[in-house]
């Protein structure tokens, strides 16, 4: 009897640890962002004040709004282009027999295994040569190096699990390849596309190294870099309040997206297991 009770206790203790570990930093960031002045440096675990002054000062600072828009633009464009390319590539890689298909898939996968830093200097030259330095398109281009292999792989696996007969039925019905993708595959692949699209979005939204290297002016920076470069009035002051307010502001869109699409994400992640 006591053993069952102990087991249950252990289980909930573990769950509590996991939740604390995952949520506490963000919770503490919210707390800090709502405090001002000296209150910042007093340790408290419950909201002591509700002071929006940090948010006001962040948003009043003209560049931060522009930087959020930069991030939105880059992440959105990356997701759209990645998905469009990945769906068509996945169709070819999962359905059409051609020489070197396995090799091509492995190559695509191996690209995503390079550490970012390894390609950084080479990529810098490429971007300079293309004249994209300090342009948001440099980020769109470089992020796709990492989002495409991932989206192609996930969508290829997903498409392989769709019964071939559905496609053959569409062929018998006289549908062209593009119509099959648009009218038959896309509606069936929504869950997988939402999942991979969201992960690509998060990757592009959080990316730091390329964003730091390829952008040189404040107005072109994306939020992770912008936050890291927030500085106080003097060398010795770190404006924790502003940093936390900015962090919370840029996290909210991601939380909102995940909440909106959570049902799709779950069905996307389990999609391979249950046939449609």
């Amino acid at each position: 009897m006591t053993q069952v009770w102990l087991k249950r206790l252990g289980f909930y203790a573990l769950v509590t640890v996991i939740i604390l570990q995952a949520v506490f930093p963000f919770y503490y960031a919210i707390l800090t962002s709502l405090e001002d002045g000296q209150a910042l440096f007093e340790v408290n675990y419950l909201p002591a004040a509700l002071n929006l002054v940090n948010y006001k000062s962040m948003l009043a600072n003209g560049v931060f709004g522009k930087q959020i828009l930069n991030s939105v633009f880059v992440a959105t464009v990356v997701v759209i282009i990645s998905l469009a390319l990945a769906v068509t590539a996945a169709y070819a890689l999962s359905r059409i027999q051609f020489r070197g298909r396995g090799l091509l898939l492995l190559t695509i996968l191996s690209v995503s295994m390079f550490p970012q830093i390894a390609v950084l200097s080479g990529l810098f030259e490429v971007i300079r040569w293309m004249g994209l330095f300090n342009s948001l398109w440099a980020l769109v281009f470089s992020y796709m190096i990492f989002t495409l292999p991932f989206t192609v792989w996930v969508l290829t696996t997903f498409m392989r699990n769709l019964p071939v007969e559905i496609e053959e039925a569409a062929i018998m019905d006289g549908a062209s390849s593009l119509t099959i993708i648009r009218r038959v595959f896309l509606p069936l692949m929504w869950p997988a596309m939402v999942t991979t699209g969201l992960l690509a979005f998060i990757h592009a939204w959080n990316e730091f190294l390329f964003a730091l290297t390829f952008m040189s002016t404040d107005g072109q920076r994306t939020v992770p870099v912008a936050i890291a470069l927030i500085s106080g009035r003097s060398e010795f002051e770190i404006p924790w309040g502003n940093i936390m307010a900015a962090s919370v502001t840029v996290t909210l869109p991601l939380v909102a997206l995940v909440l909106i699409f959570q049902r799709k994400i779950v069905s996307g992640l389990t999609a391979g297991a249950v046939k449609g």
């Binding site: 007969e165 559905i166 053959e168 039925a169 569409a170 018998m172 038959v184 449609g276």
Partner: peptide, 10 residues
């Protein structure tokens, strides 16, 4: 053609 698994568009 009628397929073994019906192959209806779900």
């Amino acid at each position: 053609m009628v397929f073994q698994s019906y192959a209806l568009y779900p």
